[in-house]
């Protein structure tokens, strides 16, 4: 399924940060969002994921077909690796977690509590969650934070497999995953222009014009 994002404007804390964001994401492709810190990558991903309302514009794909992975992995420290994963699989109506454990090299850790995982291992578990959602479009916010080189390669392979299976991925990352299927979208040109330059405003300010 093709993701079409048209003239999307997003706000953080009521202040517009990006506007006019338009792109297409074909099945089997990945799109990497680039831009300096604070440009609004996380806000854009959260808006596309349906977690916050857009100021304007539209996204063609409903949130039900997207899996969002944020900075926080949503892991429970007192549950084991397998229990954590099984929970998210069940929430998405799936049962099988073996493939995901294998893909992110977590088989040997399956009975360990998440509290006893290293930061990188936790991240791998968080990313393994994507594999048990069964959703076609992945929205990834800095997925490679705290991953070592080997794990980045592992993750790159998982993304590639996902794309090969007809899925797509939209990710904010600074690291080169070595994906041949990846396009890059620079968010700098979409920065909200602000009031002086005649750009759009937050809802409250608008009323003062």
């Amino acid at each position: 399924m093709e993701v079409r994002v048209d003239t999307l404007a997003v706000a953080r804390g009521g202040i517009p940060v990006l506007e006019g964001v338009t792109f297409r994401l074909q099945p089997g492709r990945a799109l990497i969002l680039r831009g300096p810190n604070g440009v609004g990558k996380t806000t854009l991903l959260r808006t596309i994921a349906g977690l916050q309302p857009a100021l304007e514009g539209r996204v063609s794909v409903p949130p039900e077909s997207m899996a969002y992975a944020a900075h926080a992995d949503g892991l429970k420290a007192v549950l084991t690796v397998e229990e954590n994963l099984r929970f998210w699989a069940a929430v998405h109506g799936l049962r099988d977690v073996e493939a995901a454990l294998v893909a992110m090299d977590l088989l040997s850790l399956r009975d360990r509590r998440a509290a006893n995982l290293s930061a990188g291992q936790k991240r791998r578990l968080g990313l393994a969650r994507l594999l048990v959602t069964g959703r076609a479009v992945w929205l990834l916010d800095e997925p490679t934070v705290s991953l070592d080189v080997a794990s980045v390669a592992l993750f790159g392979a998982a993304v590639r497999a996902h794309l090969a299976g007809g899925g797509s991925a939209l990710m904010a990352t600074h690291i080169d995953l070595g994906l041949a299927e990846a396009d890059v979208l620079d968010l700098e040109p979409f920065r909200a222009r602000g009031r002086v330059a005649g750009g759009r405003m937050g809802a409250f300010d608008e009323a003062f014009q």
Partner: peptide, 15 residues
């Protein structure tokens, strides 16, 4: 669930 991000993920889940 809010602190560890689970609530975000539950809000986008099919439940």
């Amino acid at each position: 669930d809010f602190e560890d991000g689970s609530l975000d993920l539950l809000a986008t889940a099919p439940i």
